[in-house]
Amino acid sequence: MSQQAIIETSDLTKAYHNFVAVDKLNLRVGEGEVFGFLGPNGAGKTTTILMLLGLTEPTSGFAKICGYNPTREPVKVKRMVGYMPEKVGFYEDLSARENLEYTAWLNGLPKAEALKKVKETLESVGLGEAIDQKVGKFSHGMKQRLGIADVMIKDPKAAFFDEPTSGIDPEGIEQILSLIKEMARRKVTIILSSHQLHQVQKICTRVGILSKGRLVADGTVDHLGREALDGGKYQIQLQVAEPSTRLVSAIRDIKGVRGVESAGDLLMISCDEDLRPQLARTVVDNDCLLVQMKIQEYGLEEIYMKYFRGAE
């Protein structure tokens, strides 16, 4: 991470009467990153976001957003950060336009500019047609998109989305994710909290997994997948016709191979990197017939199993 850190936390802790919601969280998110904040329900994702916004006070530790402490200077932080809560609500008696105008005014936008910007933003999230419709008549998906417009209108440096895709149909999810991606393209740092890994994976550059208030993993989805699978090793399954002991020992000699197990005509090879080309050549060089070879892909299930289930 060479970029400047937009979000930084240091031993951020939040304890309620009887339990610790967030436990000594150390997080660093650089400029322009899309950080997926994962974890099962009740892991402390929302609490963390609330602390980052100064909506609740940490018990100990501190956070820094764009260099400001959200507990001490909440208004400065909120000027630069957009937040879409999990159950985003709007004034149902007001139209989409009026709702966003209110946000624009609260952010100190001059009236003329606010009017123009509200229109532009609503069009960009695909609500141009419904601009004067009362929000009470909106579908859930439309409200979520309005929520994103509500974040976009303040031109934030960073944006926090708390479960933006929960309870939406697949098409709606697609729209929301592409809107968030679009924001990321404009160099907005994004924190996306979710418990739906396969959605987060599509747009996040990095994910952090929170379990019982602790950050148990931090890295790219790819990296976490390998971690989950076998401590960072690759598993290659090799099927050859009539494997010989010579072949097995030859494979053992390949640089990077950690172990070979044979079971009938199947060889299970664990290695540090993807050695499929070398393996293929070794098989051929040892006059064996290669039937098939496959690399064991990590699945999101493995990640779940390791970090979510294991924690429960």
């Binding site: 208004v75 000027r79 957009g82 879409m84 985003v88 946000t103 609260l106």
Partner: peptide
Amino acid sequence: SGTLSRLLAQPVY
């Protein structure tokens, strides 16, 4: 109505 957290996420005291 869920508007309170959105309102307080704006730069207002």
